[in-house]
Write a protein that binds this DNA or RNA. Structure first.
Lengths: 191, 191
DNA sequence: CCTATAATATAACGGTCGTAATATGAGATG
DNA sequence: CATCTCATATTACGACCGTTATATTATAGG
């Protein structure tokens, strides 16, 4: 029925579908059947591409995190130091990001569940976070903070925590308030 | 077989068991049968005490959050301003809290899932967070920060985000590093 | 055109979930 | 002692989960 476009393409579609579902519904809320449906296929073919749901979660987390990290920095190439980090925080802690998890960071929806997952999942996350923090670090160095790496880790924590709470409080006045407070905190901290 | 101690006692035991499981395994990882087992009873009796799992989650979240908020502040009655908030942050962002979720805050394990839950759950959370932030606020006022409420919201976001990430990175060197960085951030911010 | 091969669809397995109907058993009342 | 009441136990239902075995289909090579 469906036109065949090669195994690699299918794998990529599965990965993208999984990324969307993970960002929208978390790990427990993401089912293999749902992912395959989102990729325009049926369950049966899944295990020809991935050995288990956990393997899919690891790879989808990897690729969607990298994609989000890149998207977060696009268009900011001309900015430096404090101006750059502030722009990143404002973009991350925006209402747009809160209301459209699909185009954003997978951490707010999944980090809490990764804590109860197996070690391989946490190890994979550590690699990605370490890499992202290493990108953040020099920018904070330019901004003249005392310990750029510590500040990068704390900034990530603030952004993830703020977005997680803002989403958990969605539909209440506190949601916007949390976002605004966290943006203000970064601005005060860095300028 | 088991001695009967009144319906109220049973309800309380269910609530405490649910709180433990929520803090350790999140909402999806918490099953009604498991909660009743933890309370020393079997599934059947559950619906005599709560109309649904969601109702249980709301009430267990409420009571365990309040309990954690109180525990977080005990023994700190003599401290003021910056010293107080720093002690709270150090206690929250400790390895002890990371490694023993049962005696701590339910937010790191549940906030990500609450975002996908129904509105009543989010409304209930908003009430509790608003109340906690109102307790934090005057202490930050004493510390002399510009906008105490905003700072309280941002501090909560940093603490929850830091603990969530530290648990998601547990077993890797990054976990301790995140905790240390967030503690340092609060210290620098407030002194 | 026919075959070989690989990708996908169909269907089923065992397990767990939330929920509900029914059965049991203990405490209070007469 | 008999009976009523109500908390709890047992059991079952339908839905969904991850995973696997099997059937079907589409592409590539002779």
């Amino acid at each position: 029925m469906t036109r065949y476009e090669g195994k690699g393409k299918s794998r990529q579609r599965i990965l993208e579908s999984a990324g969307c579902q993970l960002k929208e519904k978390g790990i427990a809320g993401t089912s293999v059947a749902g992912v395959m449906d989102g990729a325009g296929m049926t369950v049966g073919g899944f295990y020809a591409h991935f050995p288990s749901k956990q393997a899919l979660v690891i790879e989808a987390l990897r690729s969607s995190f990298r994609e989000a990290a890149e998207l977060l920095q696009t268009g900011l190439e001309d900015r430096r130091g404090a101006e750059w980090i502030e722009a990143v925080a404002h973009r991350y802690l925006s209402r747009a990001h809160r209301d459209a998890p699909v185009h954003g960071c997978p951490l707010p929806a999944t980090a809490g569940e990764i804590a109860h997952a197996d070690q391989p999942v946490r190890d994979a996350l550590a690699v990605e976070i370490d890499s992202f923090v290493s990108e953040l670090e020099p920018k904070l160095g330019e901004a003249g903070v005392a310990s750029p790496r510590g500040e990068a880790l704390a900034s990530l924590s603030l952004m993830v925590g703020g977005m997680t709470l803002a989403r958990a409080l969605n539909g209440t006045p506190l949601s916007d308030e949390v976002l605004r407070a966290c943006r203000g905190h970064v601005a005060n901290r860095v300028t």
